[in-house]
Design a protein around this nucleic acid. Structure first.
Lengths: 316, 316
DNA sequence: CTGAAAGCGCTTACAG
DNA sequence: CTGAAAGCGCTTACAG
């Protein structure tokens, strides 16, 4: 009855359930996982390089989404949060093979491929938030749709009538390349030639966005798509320092929707990532894996939202 | 050897350890907790009323502190984060009695005494973050030192030479009462009579601070200690609307160090709570309880820090 | 000091 | 469909 075995007479089932309710019986999870060699505990691993756990609400939102997913799927969330390489050194050892954790969610980061490899060896189900840099088709992941988001950002500028649309691209990971590709494709699709003078490069930092914009301004673009919000913020500063105004002289669209994007002056038009949803989806996949219901690795790209604020003209 | 049994010949111990290293043996935690009837998993319960998990970094900091504590004490953190009463309804049932979780950290909130009672019945070790409203001397807790903090805030104003020091008090929980008491005591200790006209009341909301300040301003105080930052922010607005300036006409000190306190104009002088440290301490206590090393309930009051910003004069 | 037995509370085949 | 046995991987007394 407890394990929902189907072939039980309803009368018996009811009687048993009554007794369960009366005595307050609860199955011992440790015993269950000992004998069944599976566990409904899933681990979320956040490596120490992530120093932004607080300044950026990304991780709180992610954790919240994962918690929602766990609540919905009857899973228990175990949080592995590290602050130094020292602390996380033997994490894979400690987590794997103890039989405690049945599945893992790992926040992908190119700097952590080493840890990823170690985690993979434990051969327990694993889902990545974000994409692995190397092609690893057998790993399930939940990422945002970088291409669609950047395409939407560029198309937004095109639709508003901007003609000289520049970009500040980056080449630090797969996401940034996909955003760059989408920028180019959006222009091509709309018959706008790709002009090298309108392409500058940064590294996702505010400072690099500032520098990139300074090289862009002499080409007098009327709009800039920055591959992330930090660079967009830096670009705004450069534009203002050049005595120009946003969006009157140069419009800007960012990507990521950092909290700073709202407080910018004017507030930044940007692509918003569904972080919370990523967490929920990741748990869903993991749950399916735990129940052997996942046919093949899941590669999910979640759609983003365009948030129009003061750094572009209102819709036409 | 695995369990650090002391009476083993060093040579044997070494040989066993070598084999352990070679084979990569790891004790099965489920089996261990099944037979020993204890668990090194601790649960952190964040009830659903807490809607501010993201807007206010309080919970991220708390979670981080608890994670640090766990890493330091060899404990595993399990996060129970709820979003609706529906979700959390049968939490105590699900957590208690399954033998999975060895101890609990609960974020105290007067509205949650019901859940607290249910949690207590499971008779597994429990530590509160914050104080229970009712006197429950047998419960261990980690709180900030509200009295010391409010005393420090008031004394700061006294030391700066302010003479007509008002307060916006609240009476919604123990913390607020303690802050009010400390305000009065600081004045008494420094020979300043307590003047009822300088005492206004709010409920920790920005709006209530705004209203309270409006009743205070006609009494022309030269400084206000608000029992929390939100009310301090509201008071600043009221002062400005009255055509007065902070801190020139009226200085303000808050309590809590919300992120908004920094962005206020001028930035708010306030009492900073060591949230992260609270988490670390709570785990320490729980760890002691799990090892039967806690003689009697621990009641910890962590010291706060005064952060001087633009809403009071610089130090004399 | 050390080895072998019992048992923690379950689930999973395996007989009835 | 249902009951009794075996066994998951440990720890804890208990003999040697």
């Amino acid at each position: 009855v407890v394990n929902d075995y189907p072939f039980i007479r309803p009368e018996i089932r009811e009687r048993v359930q009554k007794v369960i309710a009366q005595t307050g019986f609860k199955p011992n999870l440790a015993a269950r996982s000992l004998v069944s060699n599976r566990s409904n505990i899933i681990g979320l691993i956040i490596p120490s390089v992530v120093q932004k756990v607080f300044t950026d609400p990304y991780f709180p939102y992610l954790i919240d989404g994962i918690a929602r997913g766990c609540n919905a799927n009857g899973l228990i969330l175990s949080l592995y949060l590290f602050h130094s390489l020292e602390e996380e050194k033997d994490v894979p050892q400690a987590i794997l093979g103890t039989g405690l954790v049945g599945g893992l969610i790992f926040t992908a980061d190119r700097r952590y491929l080493g840890m990823l490899d170690a985690l993979l060896e434990g051969d327990i189900p694993l889902v990545l938030i974000g994409q692995p840099e190397d092609d690893m088709p057998e790993i399930s992941f939940v990422d945002i749709d970088n291409h669609a988001g950047a395409y939407m950002a560029t198309k937004h500028l095109i639709d508003l009538g901007y003609k000289r649309i520049a970009t500040i691209a980056a080449h630090i990971n797969k996401s940034s390349e996909q955003r760059f590709d989408a920028y180019k494709q959006a222009l091509s699709d709309h018959g706008i030639p790709i002009d090298k003078r309108f392409i500058a490069h940064g590294d996702f930092s505010i400072e690099s966005g500032y520098q990139a914009a300074k090289t862009l301004i002499p080409q007098s673009p009327d709009a800039i798509f920055a591959a992330n919000d930090s660079m967009a913020l830096g670009a705004m500063r450069a534009i203002r320092e050049a005595g120009l105004s946003v969006p009157h002289d140069i419009a800007i669209v960012g990507f990521d929707d950092l909290p700073g994007a709202l407080q910018a002056e004017p507030p930044l038009t940007t692509i918003h990532q569904p972080v919370q949803q990523s967490g929920i989806e990741a748990v869903k996949i993991l749950h399916a894996m735990l129940n052997d219901e996942l046919e093949k690795p899941a590669h999910i790209f979640l759609p983003n939202t365009l948030i129009v604020r003061g750094s572009t003209r209102g819709s036409v």
